[in-house]
């Protein structure tokens, strides 16, 4: 399903370490993690609480900074960016999907989806056109003028996915996106995420549920901040598991 294998990844984590605290209180939340997500690919990250899943996602989205190593989004290292430049890259290149949807209650669906574009200086008319297209792509354009409190959880999450991938944005970072939904609705959301990735987006999905992770092309297992195995790379897995190596 990885249609552009061999090209530069949309997201690259290169030997990323994140340490919280200093000296005697230092805790390594992530230790030397490397991971690529290409266009057309959905990668799931699984691990127990405290394994570093959220740290990884925050680093990938530029919400947190690596202690060492590099995070690259579409080839650009985000570690060197400061303040406005980082915020701009996030707004233009990265979309987040959270467990609790995070739509702005006083805005309609289309206004929510258009918002990142408007913040980025797009004219309202163009932002709305792109927002409508993004809603169409996940099959919820009929909800365009509805406010979040008039939508079901599944509908809100589809709108959130539209917002994550509106305009040129191709990287969607999803943190337990089905956590608040019933099983059938949650599956519908994963299907939409899968379809958007099949159509060329790059997705990183954090989940603790195997049934949901199974929608991904690759599943990466984190333990204590370290990648211990992956379903996509038997060679790496063997090397990691073989104590002789």
């Amino acid at each position: 399903m990885n249609s552009t294998a061999g090209n530069d990844p949309i997201l690259r984590l290169d030997n990323v370490t994140r340490v919280h605290g200093t000296d005697s209180t230092a805790v390594r939340a992530l230790a030397g993690v490397s991971l690529d997500v290409h266009a057309g690919e959905l990668v799931a990250v699984m691990g127990p609480s405290g394994s570093g899943k959220s740290t990884l996602l925050n680093l990938a989205g530029g919400l947190d900074a690596a202690t060492s190593g590099q995070v690259l989004i579409e080839g650009q290292s985000i570690g060197t960016l400061k303040g406005d430049a980082l915020a701009k890259l996030r707004r233009r290149r990265v979309g987040f999907v959270f467990q609790d949807f995070n739509l702005i209650p006083s805005l309609t669906a289309i206004e929510n989806v258009a918002l990142p574009l408007e913040l980025d200086g797009f004219r309202v008319g163009k932002a709305r056109r792109l927002a409508r297209l993004a809603l169409e792509l996940v099959g919820v354009d009929e909800l365009a003028d509805r406010y979040p409190d008039k939508m079901s959880g599944g509908q809100q999450q589809r709108v959130a996915i539209s917002r994550a991938l509106v305009g040129d944005r191709r990287l969607v970072l999803a943190d337990e996106p089905t956590g608040a939904l019933d099983s059938h609705t949650g599956e519908g959301v994963l299907r939409v995420l899968r379809e958007r990735c099949d159509a060329g987006a790059a997705g990183l999905l954090v989940t603790h549920e195997a049934r949901h992770a199974a929608w991904a092309d690759r599943v990466v297992f984190l333990r204590d901040g370290v990648v211990v195995d992956s379903t996509g790379s038997a060679q790496t897995a063997e090397a990691l598991l073989d104590p002789a190596v």
Binding site: R194, A210, A213, A214, W215, A216, D217, V219, S230, L241
Partner: peptide, 19 residues
């Protein structure tokens, strides 16, 4: 861990079939 990876891989296959 070996089993978990293998079972997940099987779940990925089943999920594709289910799609």
């Amino acid at each position: 861990q070996t089993q978990r990876t293998a079972t997940l891989r099987h779940l990925q296959d089943l999920t594709r079939l289910k799609q």
